[in-house]
Structure formats: C-alpha cells, structure tokens
C-alpha cells in the first residue's frame, strides 16, 4: 500500500504541474506550481529524506513562491486586472508539446528497458547529524562555493531589480 501513497503524490505533482502550465490566470498558475513543489516535498518525505523535504518547503514555498508572486505583481498591467495572459500562439504551443512528447517518447522506453541492480534490502537512513558531517567534511569546498554563488546571485538580483530612479 506504500505504492498507494506514492501514486497519490505522483498524481498530485504531475496533475498540478500540467494544469498550471495550461491555465490563463497567472496567479492560479503560480499557486498550482506551489502545490506541485509541496508534492515534491511530500515525495522526499515518502522516500525518507526528511531534511530535504523541509528544505524544499522552506526554499520553494517560503522563498521562491514569494519572489515569483512579487514578480507577477510588479509586472502587472492595468489592462489586465485579472492577470489573464493570452494563450500562446497555436504553432508555438504545438511545437512545445511535440518536443515534450518526443523527449518523453525517448525517455520512457529507455527507462523501461534498463535493468537496474537490485536495491538494498533496507532503506538507507540519513540523519541530520550525518548530513551535517558530510556537508562540512567531504563537501566543505562545495558548500563554500554555493555560499559564494548565493551571495553573488543576491547582489545580482538586487542590482538588476533596483529601480533606476532610486539610483539617480
């Protein structure tokens, strides 16, 4: 019955993502994306990566969704009070879906055809303490680089989004 939970999670993620990309109301789209991110967090929880699940919620639902909503509101036009965006041109939509379908057509048989080595009998456990030690010892350099990238990204975002008027 564990597959039942997994099935629900998968249906939730795929469904909300697919619907989100078809909607015309931008705000609802973004909120559906939030649901699909929450579903991914649920998947992590299901798979036993508890820390990652919470990190996913914190980063995606707590931060990325906020930034996205801000961007949506700041790029609002007065002629679109509902934030309804026009659907894409038919050719473009068709091209996008076709390419997506082609990739799926390649990926799915490939996955099905592959024989993976047997999984370990017991699920791997991974405590927060273990994660911290790994991060600090084996991946210390990477951690520093990520910190640097985040700092640069933050500064870059501030510079990009800062209004020209304020500077003058």
């Amino acid at each position: 019955m564990s597959t039942f939970a997994l099935g629900t999670i998968i249906a939730l993620i795929l469904g909300s993502a697919a619907v989100a990309l078809c909607l015309r109301r931008l705000i609802r789209s973004v909120l559906l994306f939030v649901i699909s991110w929450a579903g991914i967090a649920a998947f992590y929880l299901w798979a036993g990566a508890e820390f990652l699940a919470f990190a996913q919620v914190l980063v995606y639902i707590g931060a990325v969704s906020m930034v996205t909503l801000f961007a949506v509101l700041l790029t609002r036009r007065h002629d679109q009070p509902d934030l309804v965006i026009e659907p894409p041109a038919r050719s473009r939509a068709a091209a996008g879906v076709t390419i997506g379908a082609c990739v799926a057509a390649v990926l799915i048989p490939a996955i099905l055809a592959t024989e993976f080595p047997a999984a370990s009998a017991t699920a791997p456990t991974f405590s927060v303490r273990q994660l911290g030690l790994d991060l600090m010892e084996q991946h210390g350099v990477v951690l520093l680089v990520v910190g640097l990238i985040l700092t640069v990204a933050l500064l870059g975002a501030v510079v990009l989004a800062a209004s020209k008027e304020d500077a003058s």
């Binding site: 998968i10 965006i85 379908a101 990739v103 799926a104």
Partner: peptide, 23 residues
C-alpha cells in the same frame, strides 16, 4: 524514474510552449 521523466517533459513542454517569461 518514469515519474521524474514525465515531470521533466511537462516542464519542458511548458517552458517551450508558453510565452510569458515567468511561466
């Protein structure tokens, strides 16, 4: 893996099909 592959394709199709930068 199938699930993540499908999700990837949905994202890809969406990114290519939609014209709104945020989407």
């Amino acid at each position: 893996l199938l699930f993540s592959g499908l999700l990837f394709c949905i994202g890809l199709a969406g990114a290519l099909a939609r014209s709104h930068a945020i989407l």
